[in-house]
């Protein structure tokens, strides 16, 4: 009950943030240096004042700002996302988001998962065996992963996989699951349209979609993986020297139980905000990786829309990003209360 109240409070507190974020997006586009009306016109037409004025009228930019703002935000909050101005002109923004968002979320989800399930165990292992050869190997590889730039790693991995038959001795495209479309391109997620349970009922399709996204997810998650490894190692080292660990040892708790019961859960506490912050970075910052691997995701779409000043599209995508961020934040708060009892439900 207490927990439900806590979560509800967090959800309520998210609404002002959502409103503030969308308002700022509107302000930056509407009052900012990019004029969507001129982008609508060809370079010839831009020269005529009348044409520009007509374009402004067409996009509704000549209306009083406050009226435009109220109109725009209120339709956004009832999820009436409108039509695009410049990117795929005139298409339904809602349909575009439904089309592009799953690919990016799929990519982000797997890159977070890979980072968490490789980085954290490796870091904990290195922390438990600090200053051994195993620790040095894990730590150095963590730093190397951390240091490799995304775009470089993406290109290298891409060329390795494309030429996998001659370079690595096996063919990536046919390994385990057949990928007829090759290494690059969109993951096939359409089988889940209208039926999210297909994720489990059609494991063949799911496996293919995972395999398709895996190289991109690995590249996108590489830096987080290194980060989480380093921070996981430090967290374990710090926890290992706590007095309660000594007390547990004096109590006769076995080494295994000390690591898994007493050290593990305490070391997770500093990792929660790292993982959730990175989760958002991955989902929002996937432009480069999406470009290299030819995935039509939100990253690229958002970038194009922002450059051109396509207010309906940028605003809607921004709205989606803010909602994602808020959801991740609420998940983080819930995780905190699950791991650390000192985080009170009724703390002000």
């Amino acid at each position: 009950m207490k927990r439900l109240k806590y979560v509800l409070k967090r959800v309520l507190m998210a609404f002002p943030v959502l409103w503030l974020g969308t308002s700022m997006t509107w302000y930056v586009i509407y009052q900012g240096p990019v004029d969507p009306a001129t982008n609508l016109l060809s370079s010839q037409e831009r020269l005529t004042e009348a044409k520009v004025e007509a374009a402004r009228e067409q996009l509704g930019l000549n209306r009083p700002p406050l009226e435009h703002y109220v109109d725009w935000t209120s339709s956004l909050f009832v999820l009436d996302l409108g039509q695009t101005w410049l990117i795929y002109p005139g298409s339904n923004v809602g349909a575009l988001v439904v089309d592009f968002l799953p690919r990016t979320v799929w990519l982000g989800f797997w890159s977070v998962l890979i980072a968490v399930f490789v980085g954290i165990p490796l870091g904990f292992y290195a922390g438990v065996r600090s200053n051994t050869v195993a620790d040095y190997i894990a730590s150095i590889s963590g730093i190397v992963w951390r240091a490799m730039p995304n775009f470089w790693l993406a290109v290298i991995l891409l060329s390795l996989l494309v030429g996998s038959e001659s370079l690595l001795g096996f063919d990536w495209d046919t390994l385990l699951v057949d990928l007829p479309s090759g290494v690059t391109g969109n993951p096939g997620l359409s089988y889940m349209a209208g039926d999210p349970l297909a994720l489990f009922t059609q494991p063949g399709e799911t496996l293919a979609a995972i395999k398709k996204i895996l190289p991109a997810a690995l590249v996108l998650g590489s830096a987080s993986m290194g980060n989480e490894m380093r921070i996981g190692r430090t967290a374990v080292l710090e926890t290992k020297n706590e007095q309660y660990v000594d007390f547990a040892r004096a109590k006769g708790v076995s080494n295994r139980a000390i690591v898994w019961k007493h050290v593990f859960r305490n070391a997770l506490i500093p990792l929660v905000p790292i993982v959730t912050t990175e989760a958002f970075l991955l989902i929002g910052g996937s432009v480069l990786v999406e470009s290299v691997f030819g995935i039509n995701g939100m990253g690229k779409l958002f970038f194009d829309a922002a450059i051109q000043g396509d207010l309906p599209l940028v605003g809607s995508l921004m709205f989606v990003f803010i909602v994602l961020l808020l959801v991740i934040n609420i998940v983080q708060d819930i995780l905190y209360t699950l791991i650390d009892p000192r985080v009170g439900y009724d703390a002000n």
Partner: peptide
């Protein structure tokens, strides 16, 4: 272990913060 027991100076650091007191007594 256990035949010799210890009580440290700072009680808040002697107990694991993420487990109940009962859990830590029952463990012993």
């Amino acid at each position: 272990r256990g035949d010799l027991s210890i009580v440290f100076q700072d009680p808040i650091n002697s107990m694991n913060p993420v487990y109940t007191v009962g859990n830590q007594i029952r463990e012993a």
